[in-house]
């Protein structure tokens, strides 16, 4: 029998999760749809005044992207838990860290990345000045990855519960706050023509911290959720 290295197993998980997400469509399309619809609601609620919308756009885009990412996170481990393949993963003789990392990466590629790519379109709809768009995309790229890591902890803790959805938001949203603060501040700085790189660097630092620590918490939380 041939043994696989950790990186081969990493790729196997990534490939399998991407494949099943792309085949079932709703997994990557629904958060995008949510993002678009909620962003449409804001002008309807606030009023069509372009100047006011332009002022609020960075905050709106970031908050809605954050919510969309959170809603997508709920399904991160749920189907695996229901069909028992999560148990197969937890029973792997491989170290848990790379396996969990692969799952989170696959999830980000199918939920966070599309959100980032669609954000310029919604920025235009919300009258955001063009000078902020590149920074919006970059900040969402880093930020949504952090959100996926933090959200994965919440998803792992609530996966065994019947009413996971709303509870997930209660425990995860307070932890999202620093990402929201730095992400939207970077976009605002770019629009105001102030330096934004330090703020993006702070997001990068948070990302590093999340990569290092979150998979450990996720692995622990999954073992707890399976054992009840």
């Amino acid at each position: 029998m041939k043994r696989m290295g950790v990186s081969a197993v990493f790729v196997a998980i990534l490939r399998r999760d991407l494949r099943s997400a792309l085949r079932s469509g709703s997994e990557w399309a629904n958060p995008l749809l949510f993002f678009a619809i909620v962003c449409t609601l804001f002008p309807l609620g606030i009023g069509p005044d372009a100047r006011q919308l332009a002022l609020l756009a960075p905050g709106i885009l970031w908050v809605v992207a954050l919510l969309a990412s959170m809603m997508a996170t709920d399904s991160l481990f749920r189907s695996d838990y229901d069909d028992g393949t999560l148990e197969q993963m937890l029973l792997s003789p491989m170290p848990m860290y790379p396996l969990v990392l692969a799952k989170i990466l696959a999830h980000w590629l199918t939920s966070g990345l599309p959100l980032c790519l669609m954000s310029p379109l919604l920025a235009v709809i919300l009258q955001m000045p063009m000078s902020g768009v590149p920074v919006l995309v970059v900040s969402l790229l880093i930020g949504s990855a952090i959100l996926s890591f933090i959200g994965a902890i919440g998803a792992a803790l609530t996966v065994g519960l019947r009413k996971g959805g709303l509870l997930l938001s209660l425990i995860v949203l307070p932890l999202y706050i620093p990402v929201l603060i730095f992400g939207s501040a970077a976009v605002k700085s770019a629009i105001d023509g102030v330096v934004y790189l330090p703020t993006l660097a702070l997001l990068g630092a948070l990302f590093m911290l999340a990569v290092a620590l979150a998979p450990l918490a996720v692995a622990g939380a999954l073992r707890i959720s399976v054992d009840q």
């Binding site: 803790l157 609530t158 009413k163 509870l167 209660l170 425990i171 707890i224 959720s225 009840q228």
Partner: peptide
Amino acid sequence: ALHQAFENREA
């Protein structure tokens, strides 16, 4: 809220 959502005390 998380504590109350679990039926099993140890979990």
